[in-house]
Amino acid sequence: MSPRVFQIPATITETIYEYLKNSIISGKLKPGQRLHEKEIAAQFQVSTTPVREAFQRLFAEKYIVINARRDVAVSSVSVEELRDFFEVVRVLDALASRKAISYISDEDIEELKEMTIKLGKFYREKKITEYVAQNLKIHYKIWSACRNKYLYQFLVEMGEKYSFYGNQLIFMTFKEGSDKRPSFMDSSFKDHLDLMEAIENRDAKRVEKILLSHWGKNFLDKKETDGEE
């Protein structure tokens, strides 16, 4: 999830928006699930106006769809949308991470090594949900050292979208506790080991090269129905 510091929302619209957005990103609200304006208003003990305002924000960010009858449902992402997403995020990730190499501290590198060890634990145990979350934490940590607040904030928002997409296209395909491992985890973990080595060596060019091919590798190339050892 997002590493942003929690702040009390300024309005009830913001409260409803954050609640619904977090529920969608986490997978609590499923793709295609209907959202009922009056039920949400009753839950928060407010009129339907702030609910509609929250819906408009979520619609603009493509977390929900609203049809001609004004029915509201959680969005379902297509492979084409995900491919477009990865095309953007891999370039920005490479840029931020390359910049971070100039500023990242020895203490940060040690923390990243520990985070990568934990990633390996989830990889070996085939815990998909935990693996994807830890994967993002590593990227957030690297991005935070880039010293460009606009680039960092944009990537954090992209990370939230990745969690949303991941819940749809990964967690719905592979059951937690399966004795098989989806192949995207194999290539992802290898990339992270290579990335950690490049960061330790402060090799900005290698970091950039790894990340330009990292996002969306394997599981966008074909629809996976089975994992690989």
Rank of each mutant, 00 (worst) to 15 (best):
P3D: 06
P3F: 02
T13W: 00
Y19G: 04
G27S: 09
G27T: 10
L29N: 02
P31R: 14
Q33Y: 02
R34K: 08
E39M: 08
S47K: 06
T49F: 02
P50H: 03
R52S: 10
E53A: 09
E53Y: 02
E53G: 03
A54N: 02
A54Q: 03
R57W: 11
R57Y: 09
L58W: 03
E61R: 03
E61S: 06
K62I: 06
I66H: 00
N67W: 01
N67G: 08
R69T: 10
R69L: 07
D71G: 02
V72P: 00
V77L: 08
E81H: 10
D84F: 11
V89D: 04
R90Q: 14
D93N: 05
L95Y: 09
K99S: 10
A100T: 08
S102G: 03
Y103P: 02
I104D: 01
E107P: 06
E107T: 15
E111R: 13
E111P: 03
K113E: 12
K113C: 00
T116R: 04
G120Q: 04
K121A: 12
T129G: 01
Q134G: 01
Y140C: 01
S144R: 01
S144P: 07
A145T: 12
C146F: 04
R147L: 11
K149W: 06
Y150I: 13
L155Y: 06
M158V: 07
G159N: 06
E160P: 04
Y162W: 11
S163F: 04
Y165L: 10
G166V: 09
N167A: 03
N167V: 01
Q168W: 00
L169E: 08
I170Y: 06
F171D: 04
T173F: 00
T173D: 03
T173H: 01
G177T: 08
K180C: 15
K180F: 14
R181P: 07
P182S: 14
S183H: 05
S183A: 15
F184Y: 13
M185T: 15
F189Y: 15
F189C: 14
K190D: 09
K190R: 13
D191R: 12
D194M: 08
M196R: 12
N201K: 10
A204V: 15
A204Q: 11
I210N: 05
S213H: 09
H214S: 09
K217S: 12
K217F: 00
D221S: 11
G227E: 04
G227C: 05
